[in-house]
Structure formats: structure tokens, C-alpha cells
Amino acid sequence: MNIDLWLEIMLAIMGVSLIICFVRLYLGPNPPNRTVAFDTITSHAIGIFALLAMRSKAPALLDAAIVTAVLGFVGTIMFARYIEQSNLQDWESDEE
């Protein structure tokens, strides 16, 4: 077994995992839940960048992972602040 084959298998699993995250982003049912999904999606993006850098032997892609980490943190904090400051109380409840 070649290491590249293993890395491709793991990239495929990460893709499936990312799709599962988008299911929560679609289902909602309210903005706090979608923010959790967004945070997990940025984590997945960093992981996919790391795997892709190993697969394509391009260490420059790890710099993209660093930028994604910082932007994901800023984005999550921004969403949390927005939800906290907004006075929308008529969101759907968490009922499944």
C-alpha cells in the first residue's frame, strides 16, 4: 500500500464528514446551531488543507491552513456577537 493511496482515502472520508456538517447547517433549526456547524466546517477546512498539502507535496498549502484557522476564529466570534446583540426572540426552538 502506498502512502498516497491512504491519504486519498482519508481525504474522501473528510469529504463525507464535511457533507454531514452541511446537513446540520441546512437543518438548523436556529442560528446558534448553525454557528456550531460553521465552526466545525472551518475545522474541517483546516484538516483538508493539511491532508491536501501532504497528498500534493506542496508545503505552501499549510500557509492556507494558518489563514483559515485565524479567519474561522474571527468568523465564529463575529457570528456569536451578532446573535448575542440581536434581539430576535422568535427563532424556532430546538425541537427535532
Binding site: T35, E84, Q89, W91
Partner: peptide, 22 residues
């Protein structure tokens, strides 16, 4: 950096969820 920022993001999200979300 991730160990410093991800817990803060989680705390901020859970506080926002508690204070406003039903």
C-alpha cells in the same frame, strides 16, 4: 494558536446560545 482560540470560540457560541436562543 488553535488550542488558544477554539475554546474561546466555543464559550462565545454557548453564551450567545444561552442568552438568546430558545
Amino acid at each position: 494558536l488553535l488550542f488558544a482560540t477554539l475554546p474561546i470560540a466555543t464559550s462565545a457560541m454557548s453564551r450567545a446560545a444561552y442568552l438568546t436562543g430558545p
